[in-house]
């Protein structure tokens, strides 16, 4: 138990076309405050499901286990309550919101979270100043604040917009679900730097990735290997290089 994020025996399933499908089969994972952990694993191992279940997506049914986040029962909370409590999920495929202006969206989100945290809301001027500075630091085009949320954004722009939201919402725990996929090296570096800027004793992150490359820029404290709905191996940052050269076969064989 770390008293920050503790996942114990977590099982979850989804109803796919009338069939119950078990995806998480007993996930145990603890992340202490101030640490960045990475999850790697083959496709279909349940990495994205874990991130959705933590963020509160209703499509998944939790059948067993618990998640304690800073002493609170995370699974009992609404998605917006989890956000207010400090959890943030950077989506693997960010959702487009036609007709919703990006700056308005960001300000609504920031103020909703500030309200819930008992902080004063930001007025339009103060917010825009903060948002402009944060988007500039992520090398985002200035017009991206004026456009509709993620509509017509390239893959890389969408991912940067996720990191922008994370920066503005100031979470204590961020889940980055394949935020590196579809990014070129420069974009990858910018995104990783965006996350690194948030690193502090009061910020933890769970980074889901397929590639060692991201972890070169965003060095994790721990790496976990996930397969068939469970964490089957954990180790230090050196594990990334081992997986990159050997693949998952050895871990899968050991776990079997």
């Amino acid at each position: 138990m770390t008293q920050f994020l503790d996942i114990a025996g977590l099982c979850a399933r989804i109803d796919a076309d009338g069939q119950e499908k078990e995806i998480l089969r007993g996930v145990d994972l603890s992340i202490p405050p101030g640490e960045v952990h990475a999850i790697m694993g083959p496709n279909g191992s349940g990495k994205s499901t874990l991130s959705y279940v933590l963020a509160g997506r209703e499509d998944y049914e939790v059948t067993a286990g618990s998640v304690t986040f800073q002493g609170q029962d995370l699974l009992a909370m609404e998605p917006e309550e989890r956000a207010a409590a400090g959890l943030f999920l950077a989506f693997q495929s960010p959702i487009e919101l036609p007709g919703v202006n990006n700056a308005n969206f960001l300000r609504t989100a920031v103020n909703a979270v500030r309200r819930a945290r008992g902080q004063e809301e930001l007025d339009a001027v103060a917010f825009l100043k903060t948002a402009r500075e944060a988007s500039k630091a992520l090398s985002m085009a200035p017009d991206m604040l004026k456009r509709n949320v993620n509509v017509g954004f390239s893959g890389g722009e969408k991912k940067r917009n996720e990191v922008l939201q994370m920066t503005l919402l100031q979470p204590s725990f961020a889940i980055l679900d394949e935020t590196d996929s579809g990014l070129d090296v420069d974009a990858l570096r910018i995104v990783a730097e965006g996350v690194n800027r948030l690193r502090s004793p009061s910020f933890s992150a769970l980074v889901i990735t397929h590639h060692q490359r991201l972890l070169d820029y965003l060095v994790p404290d721990r790496i976990h290997v996930m397969a068939k709905g469970r964490i089957i191996h954990s180790g230090g940052p050196e594990l990334a290089k081992q997986i990159d050269s050997e693949g998952y076969t050895r871990f899968l064989a050991e776990a079997a």
């Binding site: 509160g56 998605p79 207010a84 960010p94 919101l97 909703a112 979270v113």
Partner: peptide, 16 residues
């Protein structure tokens, strides 16, 4: 549903 979840995951209450 996806748009609703996206907004709520950013802290926006359901009604809003």
């Amino acid at each position: 549903d996806e748009q609703m979840f996206y907004l709520r995951s950013r802290g926006v209450p359901e009604a809003e």
